[in-house]
Design a protein around this nucleic acid. Structure first.
Length: 172
DNA sequence: ACGATGATGAAC
DNA sequence: TTCATCATCGTA
């Protein structure tokens, strides 16, 4: 009896959602099968003032989906090679999102999307069974002691925002 | 330590 | 239209 995370779960600050996603289950339909993997690492991109966030550039063709409803899938290509999976958080019109950096045995945001076949075609869609990508509640309770927080990866350009501890890792 | 590889946003 | 940059990763 697992519950699929709905809109209200994502309609909260990115930092809160990023923490609470740890231990939850990323579900991906691949062909006839459903792959389920525990989310182990996330990063929060908290708003337009966050210099590490794409949304700090304002509303552009790319960032438009970050301004969408909570639970919208935001995907983009980095370094010409890797699809990054994010879920938009907070109310519509406020750009914030959580980057999924690790699930199950995969560490690294580019590795997990490649392994599970998650691509930019999902950009702008809402998480859910219809699009074959959703998140379910975890089986076990995650305590705050199990969550390690660190600065985010690969955002050295973001001045004072580079140092903020907005990356969260589930200890095992 | 470095190159692959292509979209993005800003400058020109 | 060009140009520097980039929420990464495998190989060396």
């Amino acid at each position: 009896m697992t519950r699929m995370l709905q809109n209200p779960f994502f309609d909260r600050p990115a930092e809160v959602v990023a923490r609470e996603l740890l231990g939850c289950v990323l579900c991906v339909r691949v062909g006839e099968k459903i792959e389920r993997h525990i989310i182990t690492e996330t990063e929060a991109y908290v708003g337009p003032h966050d210099l590490a966030s794409h949304a700090s550039k304002g509303r552009t063709a790319r960032t438009e989906v970050m301004f969408g409803r909570p639970g919208t899938i935001y995907m983009y290509l980095v370094y010409g090679m890797y699809d990054m999976l994010n879920i938009v958080t907070g109310e519509a019109g406020y750009p914030a999102a959580v980057l999924i950096r690790g699930v199950g045995k995969w560490n690294g945001p580019g590795k997990l999307t490649k392994a599970l076949g998650i691509t930019r075609t999902l950009n702008g869609q809402s998480v859910g069974k219809k699009v074959g990508l959703w998140v379910e509640e975890g089986e076990t309770m995650v305590s705050s002691e199990q969550i390690e927080s660190t600065p985010r990866i690969g955002v050295a350009y973001a001045k004072e925002w580079a140092e903020k501890e907005l990356r969260f890792v589930l200890r095992r």
